[in-house]
Nucleic acid binder design. Structure first.
Lengths: 225, 225
DNA sequence: TGTATATAACTGACCGGTCAGTTATATACA
DNA sequence: TGTATATAACTGACCGGTCAGTTATATACA
């Protein structure tokens, strides 16, 4: 409402020279780049206002095009949400795959490395942006929640469970339930992240590295004296 | 739209006897009971459709009154959300307080009991209903997320941290960072709950008791062989 | 006890604003 | 000149919130 913005294509010319009128085109055809730009814009606006309150107009404007143009690339608002989640899934899957491969040789070192990395990564607001969105809409779009779970969450849990089993085979881990072990690894990190990025907790004293260290200590050696 | 419902006060009389016309009143004055009923209805509809998509009309109808009547008790849609969260907070705080008191004498037993209970409680969809709602709206209503965090999440973490410190003093727990210990207790349970109730995972094999047992084993004794 | 009066509780129709999606038209580019 | 790409004006449905009027119940009084 306040920021009318009113499409002024020539903001740079101080003098109102109408000489070089239409020096550059009003718009360009950029069919290849558009979809990604639109998804970027959608993610930003979704995270800012939530899915429902986000306006297609705002998303379009942020992507530098008109609302109508968005509909040339996506069927509608829902499709934006779906596209966003789908775009996120494969890179994450790749990352998990890479982690799993790393762990084959030395499960203990791999676990340490992964906890360190995950703790640091999830501290980053941008990386948690899509998961955050998924969490907030999952109740209303069950199939999207399920999609994300099977492709990301369960993959991650599965990868850790696999890592645990490998560690058991090599005698470095105790033989407990592998899924429970995976939850013990990921749960505390997830809880911290939700508390911070969703519930607005300021990061208390201590860096991510310190947190990871404490987590690993408890995870490996337990709480019992 | 489909369920017009059209206020028919006499649904029971088979014969269209107009003799006992207006046997019972069209509505009753129930100023004391209303607010809670409205909040119950709101929780149901919010969880079904999400906050934005929930219609005041639907909430009112589910509470058995007209939309106008809702506004006699609440300022608006936002107030329903706030009322819901506020109503949830104090019972939860009470429960946490009770747990903390229980733990003073025997921290180890208390921990076991609490993990068992929490695992079973959070398995219940109804108990997780408000937290689920909070999570899904927290991004858009930061002050509500913060309210819930300080009153519930941080209280829970604090209670466990306290329990841990007590255990350290009595020599039953190792002296690690208490907040990390609290996250190690709650994180895995939280992760499981979110995965189940938000991301639609079917409860895999094994009961809550088994899960709690595995969690406790890892938590107390660690993963290292 | 019965009846008039006051008032709290509630209804239901209505309205203004919003916004997803559509369409007529213009522009860039091959 | 043809076609893909884009714009901007437009539509239509939806819904939160309002409010004039109605109904149930409490109270006053005979």
């Amino acid at each position: 409402m306040a920021q009318q913005q009113k499409s002024r294509p020539e903001a740079k010319s101080k003098s109102p020279a109408r000489s070089n009128w239409r020096a550059q085109p009003k718009w360009r055809r950029r069919a290849e780049a558009r979809p990604d730009e639109i998804l970027d814009a959608a993610l930003t606006v979704f995270n800012e206002h939530g899915f429902d309150a986000a306006r297609m107009d705002d998303i379009a404007r942020r992507a530098g095009i008109s609302k109508g143009a968005v509909y040339l690339y996506f069927d509608g608002k829902d499709a934006l949400l779906r596209g966003l989640i789908e775009r996120e899934v494969s890179p994450t899957a790749m990352r998990l795959k890479a982690l799993a491969e790393t762990g084959a040789d030395d499960p203990l070192t791999a676990l340490k490395l992964i906890v360190q990395t995950a703790t640091q990564l999830l501290n980053d607001q941008n990386i948690f942006a899509v998961p955050k969105l998924v969490i907030s809409v999952a109740a209303r779009f069950p199939e999207l929640g399920e999609f994300y779970r099977t492709r990301v969450v369960d993959e991650a849990i599965g990868a850790f469970a696999q890592l645990h089993r490998e560690g058991v085979a090599r005698g470095v881990f105790r033989d407990v339930d592998s899924d429970a072990a995976a939850r013990a690894v990921l749960g505390p990190i997830f809880l911290f992240t939700v508390r911070k990025h969703l519930l607005g907790a300021r990061t208390n004293r201590g860096s991510a590295i310190t947190r990871a260290q404490a987590h690993l200590d408890i995870l490996l050696n337990g709480l019992s004296a």
